[in-house]
Amino acid sequence: MSHHIVELKNLEFAYADGTPALRGVSFRIVHGESVGLVGANGAGKSTLLLHLNGCLFPVGGTVQVGDYPLTRKNVDDVRRRVGMVFQDPDDQLFMPRVFDDVAFGPLNLGLPRDEVESRVHGALRQVGADHLAERPPYKISGGEKRAAAIATVLSMSPDILVMDEPSSGLDPLSRRQLIELLRRFRHTKIIATHDLDLVLDVCERTIVLNGGRVAADGPTAEIFRDEALLMANHLEKPLRMQPLAGC
């Protein structure tokens, strides 16, 4: 299924002040793959994600999502296929009620009301947040916000799920629930995170970014075993792979 594919070729981007953020990033992600995007602060992870649904446009290279190359002309088609979950759920939940937030995307797609309603309830059920539908987003907990934020993109039936730091700010139980939820999704997933244990649980492939370049790309277990590589990229082995000390 070509519409689940994400392909970047020599992607380059520099901010308005000239600071280069991405310097020739290339990779291809195929249908159903779960890919962890890891790297130090400022490595270019969030900037890269913003290119996947046209919040930013490359200054060089190409982004292909499914059958569509990312251009200003077909950005709407790209956005329909890529569901982006932002780092801070407060940025994603801007409507008066969770229900309205989850319905926001489907309504913008111009879907019939019955269809919107069934998609909203379906998405909320999928993340176990059906009971939050009538609640204002600022009155729910961090874990609930994260679940609701994921529901806001699931209701658009995206082919590809893109997440920026999905586990940040979550308590251990909420984090574990999130991991279980992500494992259930059959979507193509791209997850940018510092939570390497989450990557180990959810992603079979990992891409390491360093200074706007791909420093490594391969099976997660293999990458996380390479201590020298991790060290060079300001990373360390996931806690689960570290030897127990002093216990």
């Binding site: 913003l50 919040c55 801007f94 993109v153």
Partner: peptide, 22 residues
């Protein structure tokens, strides 16, 4: 900065200037 992020979240879900309610 936050306004920009919220706007990004809105356009990512097809916002084109009008907020619809079900």
């Amino acid at each position: 900065d936050r306004a920009q992020r919220i706007y990004n979240a809105m356009i990512s879900r097809g916002f084109s200037g009008r907020i619809h309610l079900l």
